[in-house]
Amino acid sequence: MKKKIRLIVNGEEKVLTIDVQQTLLEVLREDLGLTGTKKGCNQGECGACTVLLEGKPVSSCSLLAVKADGKAVTTIEGLAKGGQLHPIQQAFNEKGAIQCGFCSPGMILVTKSLLEQNPNPTTAEIKEAIAGNICRCTGYVQIIEAIRSLVP
């Protein structure tokens, strides 16, 4: 079954006709070519597919695209504006928070949402915020440091 949906992806309106069984992850990666959103487990257990839905981080593999109809989606491609990196991207790179990079888009988006809601998080709050995002490379130490470096 096909359905026409409208997504605001990184501020741009996209009208698409999709199969209703497509997940938001599949629509982003396959229909819109936004491969910065990664598929790590496809069952909501790793956070690699994190995007912001109306500003809140969600596992896009666990959400039917039809349920995002009419909503704003931010992917990693939407962060750097006009060739200018987002400060979170900058901090992640400087602090060694990126190794293989596969979890990085999700981690960075979760961080964005965290800092918008709570500009001054404690280390415990940082750990809680990223507790749905698995990283095998860094042991989380430098990711936590990168986020802390953004706290005034």
């Binding site: 491969t35 750097a80 992640f92």
Partner: peptide, 14 residues
Amino acid sequence: PRVDGLAKATGKAT
């Protein structure tokens, strides 16, 4: 900083 860090941070790394 990693020379491939920005490609990875922006989702551009393939």
